[in-house]
Design a protein around this nucleic acid. Sequence first.
DNA 1: ATGGTAGACCTTCTA
Length: 259
Amino acid sequence: MQIATWNVNSINARLETVLAWFQLAKPDVACLQELKCIDEKFPREPFESLGYNVETHGQKTYNGVALLSKFPIEDVRRGLPGDDEDLQARYIEGVIASPRPIRVGGLYLPNGNPIGTDKFAYKLGWMERLRRHAAGLLALEEAFVLAGDYNVIPEPEDADNPASWLGDALFQPESRAAWRALKHLGLTEAQAEVGEDPHAYTFWDYQAGAWQRNHGIRIDHLFLSPPAAERLTACVVHRDARAMEKPSDHVPVVANFAD
DNA sequence: ATGGTAGACCTTCTA
């Protein structure tokens, strides 16, 4: 069982690139972020033709997340609980009805820049809500995965030039502490656990030749509950996707689980 | 040196 996460930076602008990767990697489950479209404009048919069930939580222009699975998707939840005022489409969850069912939450954590604004407060509030939700899921003692664009650089080793990120919301002590608080609930981070390179980058900005200079950061992660971590066998960062035609600025990260 | 690019969409916001 392969579960992927990928911030595609507009599913419609990226459709050919994303389909090409799906035909190559054939993930069983995929969490997509930054769809940048409403549900009605998500290109369902090409994914259904590849054998995927499709659940979306879209939004006009910004954000938007999708959960795709070759197995049926049950108990779908749209939106992160804990704030009825929050209208941003950044979370979708469902139970993958595979022979050994696994709950999968796909998330697009707020960027939070610039620091010192309401955007940064929103990021930290969203992370606390995610921590509470994860704690509730842990109490169920099920296998689950929380995969997505966390918009947090966990450690200095997760950036090519950490000093250049010191003033950025992705590398603030508060952001990193909230990320560790999530981990300290008892979750296992897949790439750190079994990745060939635990610090392989997952994002390179479009600007200033960041890809060509390998000015990358590691911000796309998969957190696993203990029963899911017991099944984890591998975690691969698909770096080559950044060199495709019309690439996203993020690359897919894929975790493998024993069936 | 405060740059640079990409996407949605209509003038600027987000990243």
